[in-house]
Simulated scan of single mutants.
Amino acid sequence: MIPSAYPSDATMAAMTARMLLDIRAVHFNTKDLFTHASGKQAPTYIDCRKLISHPRIRSTAMDFLTCKVMRDAGLEAFDNIAGGETAGIPFAAFVAERMALPMSYVRKKPKGYGRAAQIEGEMPEGARVLLVEDLTTDGGSKLKFVDAIRAAGASCAHTAVVFSYGNLPDTERNLAAHGLTLHSLTTWADVITEARRGGDFDAETLEEVERFLDDPEGWRASRGLS
């Protein structure tokens, strides 16, 4: 069912941040740091995949994401919804169901057997594809998925995520240079605002996390981290 409500960006950002906090998808620890996929350490970690285990929150977030994409990109802008392996697959399925569109998914690399496919499902040549993922940091993984979609003969000019870091200035610039527009619901700044309002973390932790988010590399360097 296609959602018919179109909340403001500010409302969606705040509510999505609150939902992520409520399901404990947001983790801050300024002492025992988290190691990210890049190998770098940080006092922040977010696990948007937890959304799939909370039906009411999941449904609300997917309604928001669908509304935002249809409002910003157009109601008839897409022919196919693609999820990026693996975290993006369930979110792509939820959005595809709401938009009444076919769904496919993109592997990180071609599988080494059978048809050696990188695109699973049907993605016709010339199809206008929306790439859906759980989150984006610098946008690097999005470019690989988009390249695979385009190599298959489809087009992809938009990607939608629940969460964008929002503190990496090159992200949208890098995506735009690749012909890709980013649609996201909420950012670290929104989460910090909502966490402070709701008292989810103590003030000292939030202040230290903000210092990190303002200058991640400087924060790491000041602590002797690479």
Rank of each mutant, 00 (worst) to 15 (best):
K111G: 04
T159F: 01
A148S: 14
S104Q: 03
D215A: 14
V129W: 03
L65D: 00
S222D: 11
I46R: 03
E120L: 10
R49V: 00
A221L: 11
D47F: 06
R211Y: 07
L185G: 06
K31I: 14
L135N: 03
D147T: 15
D147M: 10
D170Q: 15
R197I: 10
R223A: 11
L51G: 04
K68M: 10
A25C: 00
W219D: 01
I149S: 06
L175P: 05
W188K: 08
A96Q: 11
A195C: 02
T187H: 07
D63H: 12
D170N: 12
G153D: 00
S4L: 13
G166K: 00
R115K: 14
S8K: 10
T86V: 15
R18D: 10
I23G: 09
T44D: 02
P102I: 00
L206D: 00
D63L: 06
V106H: 06
L75Q: 15
R220W: 03
L33H: 07
R71P: 08
S164V: 02
R211C: 13
P110Y: 02
T35Q: 15
K111D: 08
K31A: 14
D202Y: 03
F28E: 07
T60L: 14
L130Q: 08
E172F: 05
A127M: 07
G84Q: 11
I23R: 12
T193A: 14
D214H: 13
L20V: 04
E85T: 11
F145A: 15
H178W: 10
G179V: 02
T86L: 14
R223P: 12
E217Q: 13
K142S: 14
L135S: 14
R115A: 13
E97W: 08
A152R: 11
S222M: 05
I119T: 09
T11C: 04
D147L: 09
T159G: 03
F201L: 07
F145I: 02
R18M: 09
D22G: 13
T66Y: 07
R223N: 11
I81T: 04
A17K: 01
L75H: 15
L182F: 06
A17E: 02
I52N: 09
G84T: 12
R197Q: 13
P124V: 11
G166T: 01
I52F: 12
L213A: 07
P90D: 10
K144S: 15
K68P: 01
A151N: 13
C156Y: 02
A177H: 03
L101F: 06
G126K: 12
P102G: 05
S104F: 00
V95F: 05
R58Q: 10
Y113I: 11
V132W: 01
V209G: 01
F163W: 12
G224V: 06
H178V: 03
A148E: 01
P124R: 13
R49I: 00
P3Y: 02
L130M: 11
L51V: 05
H158S: 10
